[in-house]
Structure formats: structure tokens, C-alpha cells
Computed example of a mutant assay.
Amino acid sequence: MSLGADKVRQAKAQTLKGEFESLSMKEGDELDDFYMKLYRPVTNIRALGEKMEDSYVVKKLLRAVPSKFLQIASALEQFENLEEMLVEEVVGSLKAHEERLRGTSEMNQGKLLLTEKE
């Protein structure tokens, strides 16, 4: 690879890393959509031949979640080895937490409707 092409590749990788670092999940964002948005630059960085460890992506994902996920993110950071966790495991844990929140919210709405009818 020529020196010029290598510099272009490095510049693209730096741009993608900046894009990756600036991502954060908003309160109303769907977890699957955010995961895809987060993983797109990771895939492109790796395609350019740059190294990006899963543990780095896991830590970024846990830093980027909104407040409704802070409890599970903290638990994962405290009780799991983030160096060995796969991104898919973290996403699964976050999705399970999201489902619990959704179930609790639906139950509370049902109680609210019952109270209004009474």
C-alpha cells in the first residue's frame, strides 16, 4: 500500500472513531436501532484494518445508554468482567432490562385505568 493510501485509510479510521465516540443513546431511542448505529463505524474501522476490541465497544455502549439503563449498566460494570463480555451479551442484558421496564410500565398503566374507572 502506498504512503498516500495509508494516510487516507488512517484519516478515515480517525473520522470513524470520532463518530463512534460521539454516539449516545437518547431516552426514546430503540436499543436495536442504537446498537446498529453504534456497530456501523466499528465494522468500518475493522474493515480498514484497524483494531477495535469488543471490550472497548462494550464499555462505550455502557457509557452511552440513557438513564433508564444506568442501573443495569452499573451492575454489569461491577459484577461482570467487561474485558471478556461480548457486545451481544450486553445488548441482551439491556434488552431484558428494557422488557422488565416495559412490563412494569404496562402494569402501572393498567392500575391507573382501573382507578379511573372506579
Results as ranks from 00 to 15, higher is better:
K7S: 11
K7D: 09
K7C: 09
V8G: 01
R9H: 03
R9A: 15
Q10S: 10
A13R: 03
A13Y: 06
A13L: 06
Q14K: 14
T15E: 15
T15F: 13
L16F: 08
L16S: 06
L16C: 06
L16H: 03
L16K: 01
K17T: 08
K17D: 05
K17S: 10
G18W: 02
E19S: 14
F20Y: 11
E21R: 14
E21W: 06
E21Y: 06
E21C: 08
S22I: 11
S22Q: 10
S24V: 11
M25R: 00
M25L: 10
M25E: 02
K26T: 08
E27I: 08
E27T: 11
G28N: 12
G28F: 06
G28Q: 11
D29E: 15
D29T: 05
D29Q: 08
E30M: 09
E30T: 05
L31Q: 03
D32I: 12
D32M: 12
D32V: 14
D33Y: 03
M36S: 15
M36C: 11
M36H: 12
M36K: 10
K37F: 08
K37L: 15
L38S: 11
P41V: 06
P41E: 07
P41G: 13
P41C: 06
V42D: 04
I45S: 07
R46P: 00
R46E: 13
A47F: 04
L48S: 05
L48R: 03
L48P: 00
G49E: 12
K51I: 14
K51Y: 09
E53N: 13
E53I: 09
S55N: 10
S55W: 07
S55T: 11
Y56L: 12
V57T: 04
V57Y: 00
V58A: 04
K59S: 13
K59A: 10
K59P: 01
K60P: 04
K60I: 05
K60G: 09
K60W: 07
L61D: 00
L61N: 00
L61A: 06
A64P: 00
A64N: 02
V65S: 01
V65L: 03
